[in-house]
């Protein structure tokens, strides 16, 4: 990457693989379970978090020298909540249908521990540009897991991707269903997300044993 120095590029690359917020730091699991039953919701959530985390990291970084350390968690919480509400209100006024899709996620974004985690661990101690990159990197790392989990859950649970039937019609018994294939209803319920995330963690750690923690 010509645009970014190697150190800066790593801010984007690390969270995608060896320092992934979900599979390595095990943050943001709750929303990963809640909304990954379909791919579309995963993508919407990933974009929303990218916006809030990118911007929030910049705001926190800009204020890092004036935030009183005693109340810094509250300040962080207010920044996230304000950003999310501002986005929600603007969408409600100018892109109403989109805001309806997003409304479910508003609460989930405010309580997403990745956001607070990055504010606390990174933005409070780094400059604007690096904080912005860190926010984008981590939300990409979060988003990629969401999309992988959403892909498998929607495909195996409902036989669709982005709502479009992939395997045929389960009720009319066409396509794959004519051979006796059935959708796996278990994939739709939240425990299935834990299992998919578990498999991702397993694959990732067996490929890179350095990631396995010593007990």
């Amino acid at each position: 990457m010509g645009l970014l120095s190697k150190k800066d590029a790593n801010l984007i690359k690390d969270p995608l693989a060896d320092n992934n917020p979900i599979t390595i730091q095990v943050l943001g699991i709750c929303s990963a379970l809640a909304i990954t039953a379909e791919l579309k919701a995963s993508v919407v959530m990933a974009i929303a978090v990218m916006f809030v985390l990118g911007l929030g990291n910049v705001v926190i970084s800009a204020m890092r020298n004036i935030i009183p350390s005693k109340i810094r968690i509250i300040v962080q919480l207010i920044v996230v909540a304000t950003l999310v509400i501002v986005v929600d209100q603007v969408l409600k006024a100018f892109a109403y249908p989109l805001s309806k899709t997003l409304s479910v996620f508003v609460g989930l974004i405010i309580t997403n521990c990745i956001i607070m985690g990055r504010f606390e661990a990174f933005a409070l101690g780094n400059g604007l540009w690096r904080s912005f990159l860190d926010g984008i990197g981590n939300s990409l790392g979060y988003g990629i897991i969401l999309v992988i989990v959403g892909f498998f859950r929607e495909l195996l649970g409902s036989g669709t991707l982005f709502g479009y039937p992939v395997f045929g019609d389960p009720i009319e018994k066409t396509g794959l269903y004519s051979f006796g294939y059935e959708n796996n209803g278990f994939m739709i319920i939240p425990p299935a997300a834990l299992i998919v995330v578990g498999i991702i963690i397993w694959v990732q750690r067996s490929r890179n044993p350095a990631l396995v923690e010593e007990n």
């Binding site: 809640a34 909304i35 990954t36 039953a37 379909e38 919701a41 309806k100 409304s103 479910v104 609460g107 859950r153 929607e154 409902s158 739709i188 319920i189």
Partner: peptide
Amino acid sequence: FDHKGETPGLGA
């Protein structure tokens, strides 16, 4: 029907 915050992919 519509909803305020049912689970995406399920109740939604």
